[in-house]
Design a binder for these strands. Sequence first.
DNA 1: CTGTTAGCGCCTTCAG
DNA 2: CTGAAGGCGCTAACAG
Lengths: 333, 333
Amino acid sequence: MHEMIHRPVTLRDVAVKAGVSTSTVSRVLDDRIQSKSETAKRVREIAEELGYRRNTYASSLRRGETTLIGVVVPRLTDAVMALMFEAIERAARKRGHVAVVTTSGDDPDDEIQAVERLLDRNVDSVILATARMDDTLPASLRQKSLRHALVLRTDGTSPSSLGDDFQGGYFAVRHLVDLGHKNIAIITGPEFTSSAHDRVAGAKQALEEGGISIDASRIIFASYGIEAGIAFGKELLAQDPPTAIFAANDNIAIGIMTAAEQAGLKIGRDLSIVGYNDIPLAERLPVSLTSVRVPFDNIAETALDLLANPDPNPIRRAMPVLMPRRSTSHPAG
Amino acid sequence: MHEMIHRPVTLRDVAVKAGVSTSTVSRVLDDRIQSKSETAKRVREIAEELGYRRNTYASSLRRGETTLIGVVVPRLTDAVMALMFEAIERAARKRGHVAVVTTSGDDPDDEIQAVERLLDRNVDSVILATARMDDTLPASLRQKSLRHALVLRTDGTSPSSLGDDFQGGYFAVRHLVDLGHKNIAIITGPEFTSSAHDRVAGAKQALEEGGISIDASRIIFASYGIEAGIAFGKELLAQDPPTAIFAANDNIAIGIMTAAEQAGLKIGRDLSIVGYNDIPLAERLPVSLTSVRVPFDNIAETALDLLANPDPNPIRRAMPVLMPRRSTSHPAG
DNA sequence: CTGTTAGCGCCTTCAG
DNA sequence: CTGAAGGCGCTAACAG
């Protein structure tokens, strides 16, 4: 019983034990080739037995490619980003690729650094979940002809896979209009995101169809956080409160709930709220939140398609679904 | 204006242009060495100018190491896990390492596969945020002498970095006792986690010190999810409801809030609740949640220390802090 | 401080 | 189908 030095098992070890050359082993173990000869079978057995594991570094160095996809998100503690990354990870795995994630915060400079970090790891493509409409990063990636795709937002040019935010916004407010609300306010995301704009545009169309016109001051561009929901929720509820609010993000909706609670309003009775994204928390809140479900898995698959097959018309939108819950009902009046 | 093939810039390119050997360039660009000769300066400039980027695969292959840390979490959509990974990522970056994460779900088999995936990427150490007390995986890692550490939970043997769950549990219930509660219930995590046990043990000590004894049926081992909080919250509140509940996890606490809401109880007045972890959502809930803050950054740093310097006494516990908020107050009676 | 040499482990010609 | 040979890009040992 002696200490073993754990030198990893190499192709050579397998080759020697099988009495063949390393080339043969390499070929047998190459998934792209399907050999079922006797030798192949034996080699596979021995590899298994020895616990052979391909050295990614050597392999990638030789092949000159990595099948490594880098993902940049502002933060993982945002449930939307966590959902998005998990979906990308699943989709990548399905195709035999690997996804790695790094966080960038909200600063465009940090975003550049995040991409640098990924390139330092030799990823061969990048997925950005952070794109601002005025962001120069996608342009610079295009210029470097670095394979990339945007998810959840778009800059209008780079390959992008996102939910149909216009439709989602439409569904949300259409739902409120159908319930009979006429006094509706909207809190959406930052000016610089396509999602914030598109959701509002869809919302406006639903209002229009319902013959409802609302004051411009009733459409607020905020940020996608609970704080924003609390602050602007308070503001909206302070005087002449609406009977319903469309929050273009579940966090905002939760913030509004907090504001409403503190104003003594009962959600779903005194105030209807629709959120967006349908994060897992939404349906489990004290008053379950009506929300627009975004098909993250779909979006992830499409993003990987876009990476694999560059497309001349590279902006793909997946249809979201309204999930009605207890936070919305007919107006009290 | 002709198409350029984007062959990446190599060490050789830099060497040629600088009129030196590749070794020199390699050394100059090695962070571990600090040369400030004229040549070094010039080489650095040329590398910069050419946009040289070290090929990680070649470098790691040659060096035989990767400075790549693999992290396994059950899921990133759990805020606790997202916080933990972000902290690890920060700590790793500070040391010039890189952390990659993969998710395992709750199935121990998937956990093994997750580690396999990481090993396929040639990580040279692994951090597990999933360890069950009865888990065989840490033991098998020990046997393979694969560098690893557990975070947030421990199996009692492998190097572990976690919060002091006993103290945290003590602080939580001590707070309730100090407020005057005598009718207290506890909902904790799964049987198979050290955290669930230790938090209860600390809680018990606080009860004891307060001269309070509670029925065994008032201590419930559940899972760390909102669902569990809703289900067992309902159960507890159905008859002879406690005036306070210690939830060993914020998700459970949120679930209890939902149950309380539906039972017509007002949190903080009719029912006090203390959570655990202090996820960002906690302080932003309609009624802000008193919770035990876990020092994730601390835990991450320590985990990396443990990976770097194997320690004979490898279980380190960081002190948590109680964050009192509106969900707790004196009992109504 | 610098250059020469040798290979890390693997994959892919090219011959057989 | 198989083996021999060469090299991906980089770094460590060695000599100068």
